[in-house]
Each structure stands twice: as C-alpha cells, then as structure tokens.
Computed example of a mutant assay.
Amino acid sequence: MTITIAHLTRRFGETEVLRGIDLSVEKGELVALLGPSGSGKTTLLKIIAGLDWPDAGVLEVNGEDWLQKKAQDRRIGFVFQNYALFPHMTVRDNIAFGLTVRPRETRPAPAAIAGKVTELLQFLQIPQLADRFPAELSGGQRQRVALGRAMAIAPELLLLDEPFGALDAQVRRDLRRWLREVLQQAGSTTIFVTHDQEEAFELADRVVVMGAGRIEQVGRPEEIHDHPATPFVARFLGMTVELPVTLHAGRAGAPGLDTASLPRVAMADGPAMLFLRPTDITPVPDPQGRFTVADVTSTGALLRLRLKDDLTSAEPEIEIARRLAPPLRAGTRIHLRPEAGRLFPATAGIPPAVAPAIKALKESSL
C-alpha cells in the first residue's frame, strides 16, 4: 500500500501545527517522523489514523481518499507510548481484542482467533506471558503485547507514537533491534514518531525531519546525518558549534581554523557559517591560536572543552576522546581542525545573534 499526503494543514486557534505537508510512503516502508516537541509529528500521525482531521489537504492510501473514512474503517494498527493495554485482560485477551470486537459478519471464528493469537505470541517471542495480566509485565513486555494487539487485525498500516518513550535506555536499544526484525519479517508499512535521532536512524528506511509544522528534510538516515539540508536540521542533529567562515573557490577559511579536511563545496564566494558536531573537531595546541581553553571536564571516555573565541567572543564547546587528547588545561591556546562539517550561506536561516560573529570575521580579513 502507498500513502500520499499533499498540502496538509492543521491549525489550533492561531497556532499553525502543520503548514503544508507533502509526503509519500511506499508499501513495506518503515518511515520515522523525527523532530522536537511541537514540530507537528504526532498531529500528522493522528490525522493518518483518523483521530484528528486537517483543515485542508489530501490523504490518500492506494489512491483512495482516507479523509472520507472513519478511523475504524482504515484498518490501522496504532501503538501508543503508554501501551493502553486493558488491565483486566490477560495478554492473550489483549492481543485478541481487535478481532473479537469486529462486526459478526467479519469476525473470525473463535478457533481462528485463538490460532492467530498463538501465532503472534510465538512471533513476538512472548508465549510464556499469555496468561499474565499487564500489571505483571515489565515495560518492554507490555510494549511487545501492544504491538501484538496492533498486528492481530492485519492492519494495512502500522502507526507507532513514541513507541519506546516510557522505557529505559538499555531496554530501548534491545527492543529497537528486535522491532526492526519483526517489522521486516511482517512486511508491514510502518510510520513511527520519535524525538530520538538514534532511534530513527537505527529503525527507519527513511527519516522525515519536521520542525515548526514543516518537513525540513526527507532521506535515508546516512544522508540526513552527513548532509543536513538546513540549519534547523543541522542543529537538531547535534551540529551545535557554529563558526563564521569565508568561502573562496568552494573552500572555507577563517583565522584559527585548519579547514584542509573539509571538501570543496559548490557555493558562491562570500560569508558562510560552518556547522560542526562537538566530536568532529580536533583541538591543536598553538601559542598563537585564536581559541583559549576556558575549562576542561571529563566524562571518563571524553574530555569536554569550553573555549573562548578571541575573534567573536563566543564560547563553543567541543569533545575529544580522553585517551587521544593532547595535553590541555585551562589557559591553553589552540587552533581548531574541523574533521567534518556542513556549510550554509550566511543568509540561510542563520539567527540574528550570529550576525556579530560574521561581522567580526569580515573585519578580521580586511
């Protein structure tokens, strides 16, 4: 089944929650809606599920207008963050629920329902939990039961809303690997909402990055990680060090930066901003360096350095593997060697607060 979304908008009072969403999802694809709180991703998921309605736009599945269908007619499996299991029902009965409440004319026979539940219990690797109640299960086990209940009705589309949000970090990692295998074996078309980029990149075939009600970028995980399309995406993905540079013949340059490792880019000459992840920067001791180490803290594996920038008065923070770090302490002067980064024109959504840094760089090159 294929999903086509076009020009979808949603407003709550004066707030535009969705601002013209265009997206297509192919049969069997696993797509992540990734973004911060308030980006519109959960609202979009609810509209697809039939739990909310847009003010304008198109939602088609296999060419059929789903905005004319009620939620119960859309054959969707929905897994909520809080599981929403029925506490008075056993695991077996929770999984069977969607089949047992079907209209009489489409309801499978009791033996067929029991067989389907047994099959799912085996598939989800929880047959030993069949006769337990939700209160007797761990968070990870409840999540598996919730997924089984959603899959029991053989949904055309599986929707997951922050599926691991209520679980601790180690359980989330274990369940991610398991869920990816389960969904691939089932061949389900799946859309899931998350604010966790590691989760999105590990699970999804494609990632949709949303911000302020718009789609900022769509692509494979490695494409988005290596080539964020906008400053918003770069910041959201952890490129929190922003340094003004000057572009000349596709090369970025600035005092105190060794940019030899950065590739040439097809951008016009002039001022630009270089976005860097804190871990993609190597500090090099240099008595004439532009940056001064303000303080050093250790996490055990990493050293975190807060720097003072003589040129712009900014205080960027960088990280380096502790065992690989040169001798550094407060007061050490350094220059920086970016190992990887992303360049944007100085006018491409750069906030006004950065303007003084760009001005300082221009003045330094006069």
Rank of each mutant, 00 (worst) to 15 (best):
I3M: 03
A6V: 09
R10K: 12
R11D: 07
R11V: 15
L18R: 03
L18N: 01
G20K: 01
S24R: 13
S24W: 04
V25Q: 05
V25W: 05
V25T: 08
A32W: 03
L34I: 09
G35Q: 00
G38R: 01
K41W: 00
T43Q: 05
K46D: 13
L51R: 06
W53Q: 13
P54N: 02
D55R: 10
A56M: 11
G57Y: 00
V58G: 03
D65L: 01
W66G: 02
K70D: 10
Q72N: 10
I76H: 02
F78C: 09
V79W: 02
Q81F: 06
Y83I: 07
P87C: 09
G98K: 14
L99S: 05
V101M: 07
V101K: 02
R102M: 14
R107N: 03
A109I: 09
A109C: 05
A111E: 15
I113H: 05
V117A: 12
V117R: 07
L121M: 08
F123Q: 08
L124N: 03
Q125F: 07
P127T: 11
Q128E: 14
Q128M: 08
L129Y: 04
A130R: 08
D131C: 08
D131Y: 11
A135C: 08
E136K: 12
G140Q: 12
Q143W: 06
Q143N: 11
A152V: 05
E156C: 06
L158Y: 02
L159K: 04
L159F: 08
Q170V: 15
R173K: 09
D174P: 07
D174L: 14
L175A: 04
V182I: 15
L183Q: 11
T189W: 04
V193K: 04
H195R: 03
H195K: 03
D196Q: 05
Q197E: 04
A200S: 12
A200T: 11
D205H: 15
V207E: 06
M210P: 11
G211M: 09
I215R: 03
E216F: 08
V218P: 06
R220V: 15
P221E: 03
P231N: 04
F232K: 00
F232N: 00
V233H: 08
V233N: 06
A234G: 01
A234N: 00
L237S: 07
G238A: 12
G238I: 12
V241M: 01
E242R: 13
V245S: 04
H248W: 11
G250E: 11
A252D: 09
G253R: 13
L262T: 06
P263G: 13
V265N: 02
A266H: 10
G270C: 09
F275M: 01
L276P: 00
P285L: 14
D286G: 00
P287D: 00
Q288M: 05
V293Q: 00
V296W: 00
A301D: 05
D309T: 00
D310V: 01
S313I: 07
E317Q: 15
I318M: 00
E319H: 14
A325T: 10
P327W: 11
A330M: 06
G331R: 09
G331I: 14
T332W: 08
R333C: 07
R333N: 10
R337E: 14
E339L: 15
E339I: 15
L343K: 04
F344V: 01
A348I: 12
G349F: 10
P352N: 06
A353N: 03
A355C: 05
K359A: 13
E363D: 14
S364Y: 04
